[in-house]
Amino acid sequence: MSHTKPVVLVLLTVVVGCLSAALLNFLYNQGASLPRDGVEFGLVALIISLLSGWLAAHVHRLKKRQETWMSAVGAARVAALSLALSHTGAIFLGYFGAQSIFILVNLGNDALAETLWRKIVAVIGATLMVLTGLIIEKICTIDPEDPKSQSSSGATPEAA
């Protein structure tokens, strides 16, 4: 699995942000109320990031050949989780980032201004998801120079 390219995360964030901004502007001009969520997402993102970090710590132990319950298959799943975490975080960063910018542009509206802190919490949570995903991806990467991770066709299996 190749590493996540930052440009992919930036593009996800920008595209979702632009689409969200257009939708928010349309809703606002139609007189609809904007979503009031944010804090709950930020807290859930924190919990997900902490749990993912805990899993990554066990992958790190596995790579160091220290005692852990983590298997190689589990480590591969954590690597896949890291990819999903960073991409999902980028999508939510675009979504909540667009809302935050929209509120900042319309800061004269007191009803909108009071929700800004919720959106900022969500932006922090989404950013945490992206960073956690990228860090875990680095942890789950197997060093190609590690002779223990390479198998040659002439190698004999170790006795069980």
Rank of each mutant, 00 (worst) to 15 (best):
M1L: 06
M1N: 09
M1R: 09
T4E: 10
P6Y: 08
V8Y: 08
L9R: 07
L9I: 02
V10L: 15
L12G: 06
L12H: 05
T13D: 05
T13Q: 13
V14G: 02
V15D: 04
C18F: 13
L19N: 04
L19V: 09
A21G: 12
A22E: 14
A22S: 11
N25A: 11
F26Y: 05
F26S: 07
L27G: 01
L27T: 10
N29H: 14
Q30V: 06
G31M: 10
G31C: 06
A32E: 10
S33T: 11
S33R: 11
S33L: 09
D37V: 12
D37C: 06
G38F: 08
G38T: 12
V39L: 14
V39F: 13
V39C: 07
E40D: 15
F41D: 02
F41R: 00
G42R: 05
V44C: 01
I47F: 14
I47M: 08
I48S: 07
S49A: 15
L50P: 02
L51Q: 15
S52E: 14
G53S: 09
W54T: 13
L55D: 03
A56Y: 09
V59N: 01
V59G: 00
H60G: 06
L62K: 15
K63W: 07
K63C: 00
K64W: 08
K64P: 01
K64S: 08
R65E: 13
Q66G: 03
E67L: 07
W69P: 01
M70W: 09
A72D: 08
G74F: 00
R77V: 05
V78A: 00
V78W: 03
A79W: 11
A80N: 11
L81W: 12
L81M: 14
S82T: 02
L85F: 01
T88C: 12
G89F: 12
A90I: 09
A90V: 01
I91C: 07
F92R: 02
L93M: 07
G94I: 11
F96M: 02
G97P: 06
Q99C: 01
Q99K: 06
S100R: 04
I101V: 15
F102P: 01
I103L: 05
L104S: 13
V105R: 11
V105C: 08
G108I: 12
G108S: 09
D110E: 15
D110M: 10
L112T: 12
A113I: 04
E114G: 05
T115P: 02
T115H: 08
T115R: 08
L116Q: 15
L116H: 07
W117S: 15
W117K: 13
W117N: 12
W117A: 09
W117L: 11
K119D: 06
I120Y: 04
V121T: 10
A126E: 08
T127R: 09
L128S: 06
L131V: 09
L131H: 10
G133A: 06
G133M: 03
L134P: 04
I135V: 15
I135Q: 12
K138Q: 12
I139D: 03
T141H: 10
I142K: 02
D143P: 00
D143H: 00
E145K: 10
E145W: 00
D146M: 02
K148G: 05
K148H: 05
K148C: 01
Q150H: 04
S151H: 13
S152L: 14
A155F: 02
A155V: 06
A155W: 05
P157K: 04
P157M: 14
E158N: 14
